[in-house]
Nucleic acid binder design. Structure first.
Lengths: 91, 91
DNA sequence: TTGATATTTAGATATATATCTAATTATATC
DNA sequence: GATATAATTAGATATATATCTAAATATCAA
């Protein structure tokens, strides 16, 4: 496997909600917070976990920090799973 | 998302090792245990988590219980990710 | 430079999880 | 039935994680 940290990052409903929020477009923390019932401190913690897993990236613009999805890791998991399933079918 | 429980099940190195062990063929608990440095009790606990996530299935044969990969959930995640990536590309 | 806004960091706490040893259940064999 | 083998369940514990409040940092605007 190998996607240990990635799967751990995906295994939380608040983090899944964050990912869904970022699906349409990049968002500042305040906008992401609107969909969630957690404090900004907690949100910040979840953003950190997603960032460490390289699932999202951050850029500052003025006082705001915009987060966006980083698709490459999603693509890597997807490729891995396709190969995994494919090899299995050949058994 | 939705694959909350699935991702949590995948987010542990011992469980990833179990999945790898089952990749080639179904195995009794004793055989799976050989690759791992944990007690049978702990292994049993991990098998339970993977079973609840529907990633593996069990069948008893005599005194042994054989576990095998259940590919359908892997396929569902894969499909989900492909759609996720695809929609993103169309943005 | 003072004040307001946006976010993160520090520190505390409660819950969840991984792990162990010991006991239990299920099956097979004698 | 008694004993051995295969695995699970119960109960305890230590570590990790999610969450909060309060304090700190960064940026902008007056």
């Amino acid at each position: 496997m190998m996607f240990n940290r990635t799967f751990a990052a995906l295994a939380d409903p608040n983090r899944q909600a964050i990912i869904n929020a970022l699906r349409a477009k990049e968002q500042p923390v305040s906008a992401i917070a609107e969909n969630l019932n957690i404090t900004l401190a907690t949100l910040s913690h979840h953003l950190d976990i997603l960032k460490r897993a390289e699932l999202i990236s951050a850029r500052r613009s003025g006082r705001q920090i915009f987060y966006s999805l980083n698709m490459s890791v999603f693509e890597e998991i997807s490729e891995y799973l396709i190969k995994f399933i494919d090899k299995k079918k050949k058994n």
